Simulated scan of single mutants.
Amino acid sequence: MKYLVMVQGTHADYEAMRGKASEGSPAWSEQELQAMYAYMGAIGDDLSESGELVDAQGLTDPALARQVARGPDGKAVITDGPYSETKELMAGYWVVDCASLERVTEIAERVTGCPGPEGQTGRPVVIRPIQDGAGDI
């Protein structure tokens, strides 16, 4: 079965990776960023070697996001990010094809071990099965 493994973060986390600290999101050094990229890259390499990797991407700063919604008048309302009402957002993802929920949970547990600056608040990793057909809701 295919699963979406979503790495959660906050706008403050993106700011911290640029060197601007806040409560729960200490500033990252260049060495810490490289360690994080190497760690996540190793997970991707291992999943590729095992044949479980379908796709994996990190997402850009939420300030570059755009939200499109339908307003009460039926017309599109377009808002550029970041969105102050959004506490957590998807920072990156893997699409994996795994034999079981237990296996994808092992992968998510590994992701939560990603290195970062001391004092960083851990962010959750969310697993969602991907629908195979119309009847899987």
Rank of each mutant, 00 (worst) to 15 (best):
P72V: 06
A108C: 08
G74S: 01
Y39H: 15
V77T: 07
C98P: 00
Q67S: 15
V95M: 12
A65K: 01
R70T: 14
L53W: 15
D80K: 04
L64H: 10
D97I: 06
G81L: 05
G81N: 04
T105N: 03
E52W: 04
Y83K: 09
S100G: 06
E49S: 07
G51Y: 06
Q67I: 11
G81K: 04
A91C: 05
T105E: 03
I107L: 07
V96L: 12
Q57C: 13
G58Q: 12
S84Q: 11
V77M: 06
R70Y: 05
A91S: 09
V96H: 07
C98E: 01
R110C: 13
A69D: 10
D46T: 13
G71Y: 09
E88A: 02
G41N: 11
S48P: 01
D55R: 07
S100K: 09
A63N: 02
A63S: 11
V68W: 09
D80R: 03
R66Y: 11
S48Y: 15
T105I: 06
D97A: 10
A108D: 04
Y39C: 11
D61E: 05
L47M: 15
I78H: 14
Y93W: 14
E88K: 10
E85N: 10
A56H: 14
D73H: 01
I107S: 00
W94V: 09
Q57I: 09
V54P: 00
D61A: 02
T86I: 15
S48V: 11
A63H: 02
